[in-house]
Design a protein around this nucleic acid. Structure first.
Lengths: 143, 143
DNA sequence: AAAAATAGTAATAATATAATTACTATATTG
DNA sequence: CAATATAGTAATTATATTATTACTATTTTT
């Protein structure tokens, strides 16, 4: 039960906006922009070319070029030439890249689960239902 | 009706996290960190000292010192010595500071309102109810 | 097929952010 | 009251981000 509610809570955030910063507290491993890029890729759940990321995050492609090659060198993502457009490169997260984002979400997930003990069983049912409804309808709005 | 739902939507975001970055697309006026600080102050809705902001945003106080004095020089906030602790300084947004954040929220608000036309009346009622419930219960969780 | 647009790279300079150390003034603790 | 902790400032250095210009290889348009 708590797990379902926590999943809904996690799912709610990307409905509102794709990437954010609070998540990166204490994350020393990557620079601010590297984090943004990896989070964005994680959210999109598909291979992206640099233009997709550039537009999605409002970063110049010239910046992205460096950021991506650094992330590739450190093993967080891989680049593959796009067979459909030979100018383009498709990037996707490696296991390592996926894990580093997943760990941050796990912290939020855990914190939320802990807080849930403050609610009664009835309130938890209500929260679960309402979150589900919100996620469903917000998703519909974005289509 | 749409207005109520939009208000709930706006209210939902601070329930999830206090400051975020997507909001700043196209905002040239301020630097990244200046934006963060002003948004944080806007969310908190009260006079804060530098330590509050420093901890809230996970920024070193030495950095904040500069950021705050720049923002003060540009008229976005004012500093007042804290009468209860003479070491401390309380900062609060000026009208100009409040407006610059308000304008960004207005864009989000507008975009959401426009999207709402995609829902049926029944769905809007549902969304309103569910958002209200989510906001109420998430607020309770944070206490 | 030529012209124009697009995806990405490269290199440089300007500005912003982060990290470190040291300092003053006031509060708190023992 | 002395020792210690806290809020903020200042200055310096290292690193990251942004902006600009120019370029190659492909794709799309005319």
């Amino acid at each position: 039960m708590n797990e379902d509610i926590a999943k809904e809570y996690i799912a709610l955030i990307p409905n509102l906006f794709g990437s954010f910063s609070e998540l990166n507290k204490g994350s020393v491993e990557l620079s601010h922009m590297q984090n943004h890029v990896i989070e964005f890729m994680y959210m999109q759940q598909r291979a992206l070319n640099l233009k997709d990321i550039s537009m999605g995050l409002d970063i110049a492609k010239q910046q992205l070029s460096n950021i991506i090659s650094d992330l590739e060198a450190e093993g967080y993502l891989v680049k593959v030439s796009d067979p459909k457009d030979k100018r383009a490169v498709l990037v996707s997260l490696t296991t390592r890249g996926t894990e580093i984002v997943g760990e941050k979400w796990a912290k939020i997930y855990q914190r939320f689960s802990d807080n849930l003990t403050k609610l009664s069983e009835e309130e938890k049912l209500d929260l679960n239902f309402a979150l589900h409804k919100v996620n469903f309808l917000l998703k519909k709005l974005e289509e």
